[in-house]
């Protein structure tokens, strides 16, 4: 793995690599005290693909993401990323997560926070690659700004840049575009996928937006609320790269409708967007 991280680096700082291994969940549950947050989940997530998790608020999407990050252990069952546990993957700096609240360190500038992702993953300093990432998420010119001076959407973009700077094999995004304005969101939806495709990273994305899930992912998993289980597994066989115009096609609309229907049956009270 070490030679992979030391391998040739593109201008964006993302390292090209072979397809990432599949992720396998077998009978995975997670309890918080007496509350079962996850019903037993059996799932295979294809390596190198983009998987979107959608579901009503508080249904356990973030819990599943944290399990996949190795931040919390499953109560029962096990998770394997290729041959190793998420915890082992985490310990050898193979994954990165963009947190819902951005989790930028307030005393570091945008540049400092992006460099932190690289440093935490024990990768050599690379200011030029950091600049490129900052530009990619649309923060060029804000390199020296502190998180407190940024808007919510800018903070989330900085957090995404920081996660990408770690050149992860597994990239976990917890509602990364929640506070991003519509136009920027469109732009990121168009510009980020090529980036993680080049990297060959497996991407798992939690989102509230059905169109975004369909636009970005190869597969949408619809989750039910507590205890969470996978209610529907909807493939997105759309060609890449996916231009904005794709969203106007009938095929796209059909998949979105299928996801919405699955959401509606999962949680009758929660109307989909």
């Amino acid at each position: 793995m070490a030679e992979r991280r030391g391998g040739p680096s593109s201008a964006s700082g993302i390292t090209a690599r072979e397809a990432a291994p599949d992720i396998l969940l077998q009978g995975v549950t997670r309890d918080f005290g007496a509350v079962a947050a996850l019903a037993p989940i059996d799932l295979r997530i294809t390596g190198g693909a983009v998987t979107a998790l959608v579901g009503p608020s508080g249904c356990g999407k973030s819990t599943l993401l944290r399990l996949l990050a190795g931040l919390i252990p499953p109560s029962r069952g096990h998770i394997l990323v290729g041959a190793e546990t998420p915890d082992a993957l985490r310990r050898r700096a193979g994954l990165a997560m963009a947190f819902q609240d951005a989790a930028l360190l307030p005393w570091r500038s945008v540049r400092g926070n992006v460099a932190l992702g690289r440093a935490l993953a024990r990768r050599p300093r690379d200011p030029r690659a950091d600049e490129a990432l900052i530009g990619l998420v649309g923060l060029a010119g804000f390199e020296t700004w502190r998180p407190a001076e940024l808007s919510g959407g800018m903070r989330q973009r900085a957090a995404i840049a920081r996660a990408l700077a770690a050149a992860p094999e597994l990239l976990l995004l917890d509602e990364p575009f929640g506070a991003v304005d519509e136009l920027t969101r469109e732009r990121l939806n168009a510009e980020l996928p090529p980036l993680w495709e080049t990297a060959g990273a497996t991407v798992i994305l939690v989102t509230h937006s059905v169109t975004e899930a369909v636009r970005l992912s190869d597969r949408v998993l619809v989750m039910t609320p507590r205890p969470a289980r996978i209610a529907a597994d909807i493939p997105v066989p759309l060609p890449r790269p996916r231009a904005e115009a794709l969203a106007a096609t009938e095929r796209f609309a059909g998949i979105c409708a299928a996801v919405r229907a699955a959401l509606r049956s999962a949680e009758p009270a929660a109307g989909p967007r």
């Binding site: 990050a69 985490r90 050898r92 994954l95 997560m97 819902q100 989790a103 360190l105 935490l120």
Partner: peptide, 23 residues
């Protein structure tokens, strides 16, 4: 520090010393 800052450090496989120094 909020929990997510420590989780950030942990998610990259770093230990308590890195958390002490960086966070």
């Amino acid at each position: 520090a909020p929990q997510s800052w420590f989780e950030l450090v942990r998610s990259h496989g770093r230990g308590p010393l890195a958390a002490l120094w960086l966070v």
